[in-house]
């Protein structure tokens, strides 16, 4: 069950997308997030869907795997959709007490659902195709100019890479603790919300204890190797912006220009 959480997990494969410069991928992802909000009709989303499917082919990440990244967000998405469904004013189609569904509400709910799904789907390409280490190297490099105004770029990147590095470890740990408590008959998925919340205590307490212990051990291990911040630290792997990155950038711009054009056309229809 926890094994199903795929957000922030690298999917090993030998594709062009995997080899792109992480800085480019981060910037493109940011651009993607902004661009998604310009899409205003279903033609645009259709084009976006097709592009995402193509990207999944190119990056050799199965669509099934990508869709899995939506699973943990189902509740959030359901709430967003429901709120939009019932809270939008417009032509009333159905009414029952204070609940009413409007035509605008339906399309608004569908829109938000698509938007959130594509937001997660598209951005998950970044973490699927980039190892945490290269990802943070990219972030550090992008934040470097901010060092001038005393933003601790290296420290931020280090904290991020440690946090990312520990996601799978903590998931594994949680899995282990859950198994251990289940072996003592803990009922984790039974009863009402209160009961379920209570059932989490035997999992959360050992998890926190082990997280603190790990943090402590890591700090000692880093100190014993004389780690001290970013000044004068050299890197083993340099990031290189190459030809394929330029090509990728062009492709992205073209595809998105295409999608937005279609979106405009669709709007006119």
């Amino acid at each position: 069950m926890l094994k199903d959480i795929t957000i922030g997990q690298y999917y090993p494969s030998e594709s062009v997308v995997h080899k792109l410069d992480p800085r480019l991928k981060i910037l493109l992802t940011l651009a993607y997030i902004v661009a998604i909000f310009f899409i205003g009709n279903f033609w645009g989303f259709l084009a976006l869907g097709v592009s995402c499917m193509l990207l999944s082919k190119i990056s050799k990440i199965p669509m099934k795997y990508l869709l899995k990244s939506l699973k943990p967000l189902i509740v959030l998405m359901a709430i967003t959709a429901l709120l939009n469904l019932f809270m939008t004013d417009g032509k009333v189609l159905w009414q029952w007490g204070i609940f009413r569904i409007t035509e605008e509400g339906i399309s608004m709910a569908a829109f938000m659902l698509l938007r959130v799904s594509f937001l997660v789907l598209g951005t998950s390409f970044l973490t699927y195709t980039t190892t945490p280490i290269t990802l943070t190297a990219g972030i550090e490099s992008l934040l470097k100019p901010l060092k001038k105004i005393k933003v601790p770029a290296h420290e931020i990147a280090m904290m991020m890479s440690i946090a990312l590095r520990f996601i799978p470890t903590l998931i594994e740990e949680t899995d282990k603790i859950m198994s251990a408590q289940k072996a003592r008959g803990a009922a984790l998925s039974e009863g009402n919300i209160l009961k379920r919340a209570k059932a989490l205590i035997p999992i959360l307490i050992p998890l926190f204890i082990s997280a603190f212990r790990r943090a402590d051990e890591l700090a000692v291990a880093m100190e014993s190797r004389c780690y001290h911040g970013g000044d004068n630290r050299t890197k083993m792997n340099f990031l290189r912006y190459g030809k394929k990155d330029t090509v990728a950038l062009l492709v992205f711009v073209l595809v998105f220009a295409g999608i937005l054009c279609l979106n405009l056309l669709g709007g006119l229809l």
Binding site: K176, I177, A180, P202
Partner: peptide
């Protein structure tokens, strides 16, 4: 079943 390092499950 007693897991490996079972003391890590104490709560």
């Amino acid at each position: 079943l007693v897991f490996q390092y079972p003391e890590q499950q104490l709560f």
